[in-house]
Every structure is written in structure tokens, then in C-alpha cells.
Design a protein around this nucleic acid. Structure first.
Lengths: 457, 457
DNA sequence: GGGTATTTGTCCGTATGTATG
DNA sequence: TCATACATACGGACAAATACC
């Protein structure tokens, strides 16, 4: 079989692997490759087209990241079935029991959802199955601190990916960040904690439950300010250096150093919630604060629910050595909250390197999405709009030439069935692109154009 | 690994590849990369650090030339084995928890284990597998209150088995009793709670974390006394009517009525932890307090970790209608802690009636075990010993004709490889039989006979 | 049906061309 | 002219899945 209908031109200027990618993509969209059909193997195609295998591989990878094809290792690449149509998450996630008039959206630019379309659920299933087949595992209690195998894997992983230096015995596993915060509340002796003024309801809830006084301190563009921290005299602050919904900026290195200095000077502790820290997709990663200093003043908090699958709720914390004695004393009274089976499955997933592979895929996907979104916005609103995309966030802020309030813009978008979030300034909105499928970005932005046309000046 | 702790500064003047070289060299000297360990590949590191491959390659080349690493073509770069490498600090990975001299036992009469030998693990696995095959489940967020299917199943189950009357919307699911207690702490307005004098460390820990004052009030043989409750003026009490390690007795009906009356009269609330309530194997079951009155003053807490498999940590609570409004208001800030997959598997397990079948099997098994144990003890120690076994508990207390302390008896047993727990009075020990296999009871008791022979008078 | 040969995705170090100071 | 950094392309080695005997 020759696949010479895939037209390539070595002298056209555009790279071969991109031409190949475009050709195959078009063939899929045309129906030349029906859904579920196996693509020619990398070797076959490279021979037939007289290309290097790497070239073909690069094209396949891109198709894979963007969801057009799925890879089954040692088996082949297959055209994806059902064009990435996972149920819209946000609506079902937050309709507790109390019925409320939740608006229905066709497209969602929220910042609260994630993309699990490129998660290889099969691999995850296989790990779960492997664990289930180990009878002694399923029929015994787990370690209250977290499965030793998982803690060992996390110790290595968090060091490699985030620069966190923590031995397995410093790591405590839990069913997400929240249960771990309850634990930490017990370890903090002074019942006051600072967070930045934007707030963080789930954490504040925990602090409130534990009788803490929560101080919302002012922040500037770089994050919470150390001078007000100093003034307030608190001994603990919760920060999320990689997360910043307002303008998509991550906390710069300078502020991180300033915080560390403040902590050291005041014998205080920084609770570093590394939300999305792994996902810095378009720039060099910023290491976690925990690993920058000696780690003595930082309690690191990591989580997987946003990385892997929304249904997997596992988080972990790395305690400084100074806290260990106290923790161990109290540990016997704390039960483990995370599922043992999922802990062990995750341990296998991490240890086999599949999580890092997945992370790499995710970063590429988010890079592609941000690019697509920027292109679409530019095309729709031309030079009249300004786009702010700062390093790490999974959203961008678009500033339009109009006087309408941010809320008014959101409302107008909602009437077209598109969910966008308000930004700080009038005429601006926040577009989160993590949850929206790549191919929906273009039509969604076109709807936004329709929605906002009457408001533009 | 992504190794982004290798700090680089593009504007520092010094070339990137030299900075990278220095960082890696330092990591090798620090021992972060042990001898012989493979460095991240050029491709991976370049992607993770957002550098070109050439840059990384240049750094590697320099390391190679200077002898820090060796290259094995088509395989990778490896830390040279000849270089001076300090003892490793981080991630030596396998010295997990605090090392302690955990005694090794051949037989265990502890009260903290359960029998899962008669759990049909195959069936449980099948339920898990069924859930895993539903893609929309695994790739979406769960309901923070607990999966609706599970809450519906629990509503029916808890009524049928324990007489608990609660609609699905009253039920909140969590990863065991402890996380649910944190939630309940938020719902109780008066920050004082009573428990009986024997204590309950895991619960007290939660109350302490939440700033509650815990009053250990005196109990008599029937459980916590209502007169002291009355005196103390508390508005909440935590009881475990089916659990009583001391002498194996369950709280009698009379005391339950008394408690309910006290609660009604004082507008107080009873936290009913129905630990082992389902397992009353040798007498008529006593219904839960929640279902006896109108349910307005009782918060019911149930759990499955002791019933099904130790690795399945799911619990639930049934909130009185009066608490629902407050709960819903706060619910949006609470994340679910229990695994979604296990919730749905459990839901199938309950709905198909397999849990009730399993319960019946368990009751029979525990009845057989208690019989066997009593016979073995009588045979070993004859008429000189007294056996206390009251209705429900999964343990019995054996009183021997000797003056040795309870701890001394436990120590002597331990030296024979048998774990038993101390009892309240000298010459007595507690034998939990839930965890020990039926056929091991006889030989274990014979070992006890050997162990205690010198101590008997 | 069980062992063997082949296929296949994946990972790897490397070479080359080019843009930018 | 040269050092630096990057993008593209190459083919060898490996282990797992699969097909075949």
C-alpha cells in the first residue's frame, strides 16, 4: 500500500512533519480514515513516504495530543472514535442537591474544569486491575500515612517534576487537599492564617472549622505582599504560587524569595498549594518554593485530581522535618482518607513514568489550545482587542474596546450559550481553555463575536 | 523526570548550557543523582526545561568530557561510577516510616482487624470493573455529597438493616467516619461534645482540631450516663451503642430510650456511630437510635470498612432534616473524600443485595468463631477461668485465676507469638476473634496455655 | 494451546541547517 | 566570524503486543 495521496512537498518551507500532520488530519475529517481504523504504522509509512520514522512519529504525536487519533502502545495508532465528547463537567459537578437555575451552556470557558480527553483511561484501568488482582492488598488495611509505595513514588516524582525535596516519611497522602488541610491545622499552633485577598473558599472553610482566624491580606500583581504579612504578625500563610485566575500570571521568582525570607525571619510557615504547578506548559517551569530554600519553612501541597482524571481524588503534603515528631505523635489518630486501591494504582502509574508522559502530553495540548484560542480571538476581534496570557495559567484575559462592564460581557456571552468569567477590569473577560475541547474553540469564539458585536465601540 | 529544580536564568549573561552543566554537576555531587543512575534523556530534559536539544546536549557533552557522566550510545547518559559522590540525602526512597520494632505475631487476637476471608472478592472486583467500563463515570467529577446512586442505595439499605429512616438527600458520603465528623463539627453550633469515659481517640482528635471541648463523662455497664449528661449541660454527645470493647456488651434498649429522651428534652443531638451495628451475630438485632424516635435529634454514622474489605473506606451519615439547610449552604465548600469508583461499586454491591447476603454470612462466621474460641478457652483453662461475652462485640474477655497484670499476660502471650489485648482488670485479657481465621483459633489458644501456664495459680 | 518470530510504539543519541546576536 | 540556541530529520535499540506456527 502506498499512501501517496498524502501530499508532501519537501521544498515548501513548512516542515515535513507538519505537512504530514495536516494531510492525515484532513484525511480523517474527510472520512478517508474511518473512526476506529488503524493508521499505517510509523515504520510502514516512513518507508512508503521515504521519510524518517521520527518525522512520522512527530506527526502522529501531534494528532494524538489533539485528540484525532489514539495510540495503543505496541499495537498501533487508531482514529479516535466519537470526537472527544465527554459530558460537560461543570454543570453536574456543582448541582448538589439543592436545585438552582443553573444556566445551560453550549461552550464553556470556565476555569474550573480540566481536559481528560488525552488521559489514557485504558492504562489507568490496567493499573487498577493489577492492584485488584493482588489479593493481599485488597484484604488488608492501608497505611494511615499513605501507601509506602506511593509515598516513595511521590518523593521521587515531586523532586523531579517540582524540585520538592522530601523523603517518603515526610509525605502524607489524603483524599485531596482539603482533608490534608485539616491535618495541617492540627500541626499549626497559632490559630491564625493569612491568604491573599482573592480568597480560597474550600481552604477557608477548613480553617474556619478548625477555629482559625483567616486574614485576607492585600495582594499586588505578583501575589500576596510581604509587608502586610509582616505587619499582621501571622505565623502562617497559604499561597498558590502557580494559580492566579485574575490575570493568568504565576507568582514570580522574586516574590517567592521574598516570602521565603519573610518566613525564615519570622519563624513562620508557608503552606504552598502547588495547584497546577506541573502544568506550566509554555515556558520554563518555576520550581516549588519548598525546594528553593532548605524546605524548613514550607509545607508543600500537591494534588492529582486536576491532572489525571476528575474521579481520582488524591493529594499529598510534604512536611518539614521539624513537624515530623508532632505529626507522628498525632498520626495514630488520623485515618487515611484516600482509596487504597487508587493509591496503589497511582503509585504504579507514577513509577512507570506514565504520569510524566501524560504531563508532557497535557502541556502540549494546553499549548495547542492557547495558540488556537489566541488565533481565534485575534481573528474575531482583530487589532481592537488586547490579549493577556501570562506564563502558566490555563486561561487568558481579553480586553475589548468597549465600556461594558465585565459582568455585562459575561451575561451577553451567556445568552449565546457561552460561559466566560468576569475579569477585574471593565471591558475584559477571562477565558479558561482547559476544559473546552480543542475543536470547539473556534466556533465558541465566533459565538462570542456575535454576542459582543452590539457592545463594541 | 522533568528536573526543573535545575535553576536557570536566561538573562544572567552566562550561557544556558553552562548553567545547566553546573546545576547537573552540583546535583551529582550532592548525590541527587546516585552513581550509575541514568540522567534524563536529552529530549526529555530539553522539553521540560523549554530548551533546545542542542543546549542540553552541549551541557551533557561537557559533563562527559569532564568525566562526571558516561555516554552509552542509543541508551543514555549515566552518572560515572568513579566520581566522588557524597552519601545520598534525598530520595533514597525505601526507608519509609519511622523505624520501630514492630513485634511479629503468628496469631492475632486484636480487635482492630476483620474477617474478609468470606468476602467474595471476585464479586467486588466485578463491580469495580463494571464501573471502570463506564467512561463517563471515570472522566467526570463526583457529587460532593456522594454519588446519588449510592445515597439511594444506602437510604434503602440502612432502613432495612438498621431501621434508619433517611431520604437520599439526607445522606452524606465520605471516606470513613472521620472526614464526616469534620463536616458535623461545622454543623454543631455549641463547641462542646460529650463522649463516654472510655474515649475514642480518632473522634476526639477531630473535635480537638475543630476547637471543641471534649467531656469524657462517666459510664456504667450500660453506657454513658444521662444524669451526668444532664448536669454537664452539653448539647451533643457521641455514642457507639453497638461497640464496647471493655466487656463486649451493647448498649441496652433502655439506655437508648433514656438518651433519646435526654436529647429531646434538652434540644441536644446524639451522634450515633453505629460501629459494628450490623454485626450483632448472636442475638436479636437492636435497631439504631436514629430510627426509634422521630430522628430529629440523632445524626447517624455508618461505615463499611469493617464490613466489606479493609481497603474500602466508605462511610455515610444521615442528617436530620433540621440540619439540611445549613449543610447545603456549606456543602459547596466541601469536597468529597470517598473514591467515586468505590462509591459506585458499593452502590451496585448494595443494590444487588449482595451486601446483605454477605452480612448474613459474616454473622454466621462470627458466631462460629466465638463458639470455637469459647470451647478452646474452656478446654485449655478449664473451670478456673471466667469468660465474658456479651451480645454483639467481636471479642471476649477472659478472666484467669492469677494475679499477673493484664499487661503481663499480654507480654507473655507475645513471647509465644500471639497478640492479645489488655483488659481492665488484672488477670484478664481481651481476645478479639474477628480477624483470626477460624482454624487458627484452636492452635492459638494452645499457645496461650503454654504462655500463661507459669503465671497461673 | 503454548512457544516463537514479527510487528509496533517508544525511547534514545546524533547530525545538519538556520536564525540571531 | 563565531558562539549560542533552536528546529528538523535520522536511524539504532528495546520491550510489549500480536500473529503465527
Amino acid at each position: 500500500m502506498t499512501y501517496d495521496y498524502l501530499t508532501l512537498n519537501p521544498n515548501s518551507g513548512t516542515p515535513l512533519y507538519q505537512q504530514l500532520y495536516a494531510s492525515i488530519r484532513q484525511s480523517i475529517e474527510n472520512g478517508h480514515f474511518p473512526k476506529g481504523e488503524k493508521l499505517p504504522s510509523i515504520r510502514k509509512l516512513s518507508e512508503d513516504l521515504h521519510l524518517s520514522r521520527t518525522t512520522v512519529e512527530a506527526a502522529y504525536q501531534q494528532l494524538c495530543v489533539e485528540g484525532y487519533v489514539k495510540t495503543r502502545p505496541q499495537s498501533g495508532f487508531f482514529v479516535a472514535t466519537g470526537t472527544v465528547s465527554l459530558p460537560r463537567t461543570a454543570s453536574s459537578a456543582f448541582s448538589i442537591s439543592a436545585p438552582s437555575a443553573v444556566p445551560q451552556y453550549q461552550y464553556q470557558f470556565g476555569t474550573d474544569s480540566v481536559d481528560s480527553s488525552c488521559t489514557d483511561i485504558k492504562i489507568w484501568r490496567r493499573h487498577i486491575r493489577d492492584v485488584l488482582n493482588r489479593q493481599e492488598v485488597i484484604a488488608s488495611y492501608g497505611d494511615p500515612q499513605g501507601e509506602p509505595a506511593l509515598r516513595a513514588a511521590l518523593s521521587a516524582y515531586s523532586f523531579g517534576v517540582r524540585g520538592v525535596t522530601a523523603k517518603p516519611e515526610q509525605i502524607v497522602v489524603g483524599a485531596g487537599t482539603q482533608p490534608l488541610l485539616y491535618l495541617l491545622c492540627g500541626l499549626l499552633k497559632e490559630k491564625r492564617v493569612a491568604i491573599d485577598e482573592r480568597g480560597f473558599p474550600q481552604a477557608e472553610r477548613v480553617f474556619a472549622d478548625c477555629g482559625f482566624q483567616v486574614l485576607r491580606l492585600p495582594a499586588d500583581g505578583d501575589g500576596i505582599r510581604t509587608d502586610t504579612l509582616e505587619q499582621s504578625g501571622v505565623k502562617a500563610v497559604l499561597v498558590r504560587p502557580s494559580h492566579s485566575v485574575q490575570n493568568g500570571t504565576a507568582m514570580p521568582m522574586s516574590r517567592r524569595y521574598a516570602l521565603l525570607e519573610w518566613a525564615k525571619a519570622n519563624n513562620a510557615v508557608i503552606l504552598e498549594d502547588d495547584y497546577n504547578g506541573e502544568l506550566r506548559y509554555n515556558a520554563r517551569p518555576i520550581p516549588a518554593m519548598q525546594g528553593i530554600g532548605d524546605g524548613g519553612n514550607v509545607i508543600y501541597l500537591g494534588s492529582f485530581s486536576k491532572l489525571l482524571l476528575p474521579s481520582v481524588r488524591i493529594g499529598y503534603t510534604a512536611l518539614p522535618p521539624a513537624f515530623l515528631a508532632d505529626y507522628r505523635e498525632r498520626a495514630k489518630d488520623y485515618n487515611q482518607t484516600a482509596s487504597k486501591i487508587e493509591q496503589l494504582a497511582l503509585s504504579g502509574y507514577v513509577q512507570s513514568g506514565q504520569l510524566e508522559r501524560h504531563l508532557r502530553r497535557l502541556r502540549k495540548l494546553y499549548a495547542a489550545k492557547s495558540e488556537t484560542l489566541i488565533r481565534a480571538v485575534k481573528q474575531a476581534f482583530g487589532k481592537k482587542c488586547t490579549i493577556f496570557l501570562r506564563e502558566t495559567a490555563l486561561c487568558l484575559v481579553v480586553s475589548l474596546p468597549c465600556r461594558a462592564s465585565s459582568e455585562a460581557l459575561c451575561q451577553a456571552a451567556q445568552e449565546q450559550g457561552v460561559r466566560v468569567l468576569p475579569a477585574k477590569e471593565a471591558g475584559s473577560v477571562t477565558l479558561g481553555f482547559a476544559g473546552i475541547p480543542l475543536e470547539e474553540i473556534q466556533p465558541a469564539v465566533e459565538l462570542l463575536k456575535t454576542a459582543w458585536a452590539p457592545l463594541l465601540s
